[in-house]
């Protein structure tokens, strides 16, 4: 048995995402409606949970730019961020019909 991605070896999320296939749209289906909330308010009690609960690591805090950068191309459309952002400032919509994640097993 030879394996390209051995199941019993450690695997980073980047490697996991590498197993996936998308039809990419040019326009983002994700937006943060009040980015100022991410800077201060969410830093305190909640510590920007979108940067950890998202299974595709779509949200990343960029310290220099003082903002959440959205890698929308990685989104697997699990819909968790609709409820997981404590301040509900993530405006996530379905990608346009036919675009986005395309599972071959699911």
């Amino acid at each position: 048995m030879s394996a390209d991605r051995p199941a019993d070896a450690p695997m980073r999320v980047e490697d996991k995402l590498f197993t996936l296939r998308w039809k990419h749209d040019k326009q983002s289906h994700i937006d943060i409606t009040a980015p100022e909330v991410c800077v201060e308010t969410c830093r305190g009690e909640w510590q920007r949970p979108c940067t950890t609960f998202c299974p595709a690591k779509v949200y990343e805090w960029q310290a220099e730019q003082e903002k959440i950068v959205i890698y929308f191309e990685n989104c697997v459309e699990c819909t968790t961020c609709l409820l997981g952002c404590p301040y509900r400032v993530i405006d996530w919509r379905h990608p346009r019909g036919g675009y986005g994640i395309q599972y071959k097993n699911g």
Binding site: M1, A3, D4, R5, P6, A7, D8, P10, M11, K16, L17, T19, L20, P55, A56, V76, C78, T79, T80, Y103, K104, N105, G106
Partner: peptide, 23 residues
């Protein structure tokens, strides 16, 4: 979970074909 001593032998030698997530 994949490194759990009772799960690791079940997946040993396998190939990760696809990752996925859903609510």
């Amino acid at each position: 979970m994949k490194q759990h001593p009772m799960i690791r032998p079940l997946i040993a030698g396998g190939d990760v074909l696809e990752y996925s997530a859903h609510a």
